[in-house]
């Protein structure tokens, strides 16, 4: 699946991945390929993208959206760590 991590200033991550673990407003949420369409608010915490190009980000606020094979993490604040 294809993952993009977007901050207000720029696109921080854009590439293929096997799994995404994101801090939703009420706890961690894991996204694997072929997930159902999904839209949730983000809390704050660590976002992990694994497989393909891996990446770890500290995110806060915003939302996560899954449509088809696309995962979009649109966060109000993103820091690469």
């Amino acid at each position: 699946m294809h993952v993009t991590v977007i901050s207000p200033e720029r696109t921080v991550f854009d590439g293929p991945a096997d799994a995404v673990v994101a801090p939703a407003y009420d706890g961690q949420v894991g996204i694997l390929p072929r997930h159902a369409p999904f839209l949730t608010l983000l809390g704050s915490g660590m976002l992990t993208v694994s497989g393909g190009e891996a990446g770890r980000f500290r995110v806060a606020g915003g939302f996560l959206q899954v449509v088809g094979d696309e995962v979009r993490v649109v966060a109000d604040r993103v820091e690469i760590s």
């Binding site: 009420d26 999904f38 839209l39 608010l41 915003g62 939302f63």
Partner: peptide, 24 residues
């Protein structure tokens, strides 16, 4: 939105995204 799993709910999402939109 009719085809999405929405968490917590459409209203709650809208409520917290609106300020982000204004800010943006």
């Amino acid at each position: 939105s009719a085809y999405y799993i929405l968490k917590p709910s459409a209203d709650a999402i809208l409520e917290s995204l609106l300020p982000l939109y204004v800010r943006n």
